[in-house]
Design a protein around this nucleic acid. Structure first.
Lengths: 235, 235
DNA sequence: AAAAATAAATGTAATTTTGACAATTAAAAA
DNA sequence: TTTTTAATTGTCAAAATTACATTTATTTTT
């Protein structure tokens, strides 16, 4: 069969913006780049798309190799394709953002990478256009989380309402009213109260809740306005 | 400088899902494919990314070449990268969706393409995975338009409230209450009433409005819940 | 053992927004 | 002059949102 001759091929890669939450702050997982140029500099984790895989598969592979995790929330963010973005050779990158439970992340023993979690408000200079990718991912996270219950992906299976509220407050850098917040969240009907309290963080203890996975999946596209005026956070 | 050897390069293309509105129905602009294979079959307009351009530029170029239009609403939809999606040779495509004022579209005289507007509810079988692209673009349009005032992009500079309402009704396949609709739309404060009526479509005539571009741009990210339960339209 | 300290849990009233519903008006056609 | 057609406009009830303070459970201190 005829080929598309005279067309220029290029390298296609994927980079992952990996978010985590340590209970207080949003975190970003970065690696020290192995390849030249810029070897040793901090960057997002990424990799080239292989001949036999789709972009989703490439992103999952890269994420799994670094974190050991599968079944992670992973969403295509956008393509980055400035011809000169990679000084070595033209490479178009499709950025994905991932939300993981930071507790599930275990530094892989066969550490091909040197990886580290950084505070989202303070992390090293990144290579190429990775800073732009992170900015876009943050904006997307805020936008998406204002309507869809994706922030649960950042929490462990059991969590308390105060923990959840802290997460929202951290993502949007706002303070929220406890009473209104719990009413809003509970009215979504996605949570189940457990018979157990978290006594780590207070004397009285706060009830643990867990996601009802079935309802979560069924209502994933449901639109809840948890955050007032979400638009102002979307740049 | 070192190159990324041993990595496989591939072809990168862009395809545009171009929406229009003729006052009654949503339309899709399709072209008859020039290249083999599938020459003569209907497809989205597309093209390969050139060495000196970004994906946004490639999409704009493709769109401009077909429609003669610049400054069109154009948004990255997502990548399509199944290894076998193009039977000829591996090609990853980044789909964009475009919203244009159908009246501004003039068949280019140097018609490199045979292009035609089709009713979104009835159009020919498309090549490769283009059907999937259209489906995804429709879903995205519904989702986005439920929160952001993008449907104005499909209308001429002067339009009436009944025309605007018809457009929303067509996009969501619902009927809306005139009173509630105009209240909602006007409360967004994006429209300016003109001193002129459209007498084409009724005896009484309906007032023309125009977008206040300044407010439109300033409030572009503002979230208006024009459509109740928008989530049910997002697949 | 009682008191103090800490953080969690909970309720209510005022305001705003939404959704449902019908009468009036302007202009052309009969 | 009457009829027809579609545009315009208002109100009321229900629901959602916002603002705001007290009570409760438990540990720590005295």
């Amino acid at each position: 069969m005829t080929k598309y001759n005279h067309q220029t091929k290029l390298l296609l890669a994927t980079d992952c913006i990996i978010f985590g939450f340590d209970g207080r702050q949003l975190k970003l997982l970065l690696v020290q780049r192995a390849l030249e140029p810029e070897a040793g500099k901090w960057s997002l984790v990424g990799g080239f798309v292989q001949p036999n895989e789709s972009l989703d598969q490439a992103a999952s592979r890269v994420l799994h190799k670094l974190t050991g995790l599968s079944d992670v929330y992973l969403e295509e963010l956008s393509t980055f394709s400035e011809p000169s973005r990679d000084p070595v050779e033209r490479t178009v990158s499709v950025a994905y953002f991932a939300l993981i439970d930071i507790n599930k992340y275990k530094q892989q023993i066969t550490a091909d990478y040197h990886a580290e979690w950084f505070d989202l408000n303070k992390y090293p200079k990144l290579i190429f256009d990775h800073q732009e990718m992170v900015d876009k991912a943050k904006a997307r996270l805020r936008y998406k989380a204002a309507f869809h219950p994706i922030l649960f992906e950042l929490l462990p299976p059991k969590f308390t309402l105060p923990q959840l509220q802290s997460l929202y407050e951290e993502v949007y850098n706002i303070e929220m009213d406890k009473r209104n917040f719990s009413r809003k969240i509970l009215s979504m009907n996605l949570l189940e109260k457990l018979d157990e309290k978290d006594k780590e963080n207070s004397k009285k203890g706060a009830w643990f809740y867990k996601l009802n996975k079935k309802k979560y999946k069924a209502n994933f596209h449901s639109v809840a306005t948890i955050i007032p005026n979400p638009d102002i956070y979307y740049s």
